[in-house]
Amino acid sequence: MREPLHSRASTFLEALEAALGGPGQRSAEVVAEVQSDLEAAVAAAIARGEEPAAAWARALDDLGDPQELAAAMRGPLPPERPARAMEHARRAAAVLVAGFFAYTAWAVRSWDYGDRLGLFLFFGALGFPPAVLLWPGIVWRWNALFSTVNAVALVVLAGFLVVGGTHTVATYELAATGADEALLVDGEALAAALPAETGEPLLEREHVLALLILAAAGLVLSLIQQAGQRRRVLLIGAGILVLIDLPYTIEEHLFVREARHAAAWVEAEHARTGSWPKGEEFTERYEPLWIDDLWYSPPVSAEDETFSFQWPRYLQHSAGLGYHSDGTIWGND
C-alpha cells in the first residue's frame, strides 16, 4: 500500500525544488524521482516492521540537507530535453549545415591536385561549431575556464606552427674563389630576408582568420560534455572528410596512371615519326576512352620539347587535372 507523503517529506521536496531553481521540467523530474525512491524506501521499512514516522525520518536523514543535495546534483544534472518537434528541427538544421559545408568542401577539393589538409582543416573547423551547437544534447553547459583555456592553447600552438612555417629565403652567390668567406653567415642578407625586417607581419590576415576559426572549433569541441560524444563527433567529422577525399584521391591516382601512359605515347610517337603528335592525333587516341573535352598543347617550336594536356575531372566537370611533360601535375578550377 502506498504510504501518504509525510509532511516533513513534503517540506523537504519543496525545499529541494526551490534549491534546484524553482519549478521547471528538469527540477520537477528530479523531485519526482527523489519522491518515488523515498516512498519505496519508506514502504520497504514499514514492511520490515518499522514505524511509519521513524521510517520517514530515517529515509529523509539519508537524503541529507535539501540545499546540499541540490548543490551536489546541479553540476552533473543533464540538460532538459527540448520538445520533440524542436529536437527534430535542430537535428535537421545541424545536418543541413554539415551538408552545406561538406558539399562546399567537395566542390573546393576538386580545384587542386592532392592538396587537402589545409582545405579540410578550414572547412572542418568552419562547419563544426554550428553543426555541433545545433544538434540537441551535445553542448549544454558553459564551462568557461576549461573550455577557454583549451581553445587558447590550441590557437597559440597553431600560431606557433604558422609562424614557424613561414617561408624565408636568403640567397648567397658563391664565387669560384673565396667560397669559404662566402659561406660565412651574412648578417645583413639574413636580416633582410626576415619578414620583420621587410615590414611584413608575421601573421597575415588570413592566418589570423584561420586561427580564429580554429579557436571556435576548439572551444566548441571542449564544450562537449561527454567524452564518448566528443569521440563520436570527431569520428563522424573525420569520416565525412574521408568520404569527400577518397573519390578524388582515387580519381587522381587513375589520372596520374593515364597521364603517364599518354605522355609515354607522345614521346614514343615523337621518337618514331620525328615530329610531335598534333592535337587531333592526341584527342583521337584519348578522347574516345573515358575523357571528353580534352585539351592538349604540343611543343610550340622546334627547340621546345615540352608538352602538356589537361582534361576535366570526372567527379567535378567544372574542374580539371593537368599534366606537364616535366612531370608536374596540377588541379585547375
Binding site: V30, E33, V34, D37, L38, A41, A59, D62, L63, G64, E68, L69, A72, M73, G75, P76, L77, P78
Partner: peptide, 10 residues
Amino acid sequence: KQGTLYPLLY
C-alpha cells in the same frame, strides 16, 4: 545514501 547516489547517477 540516497543523497550520494543521485549526483553519482547524474
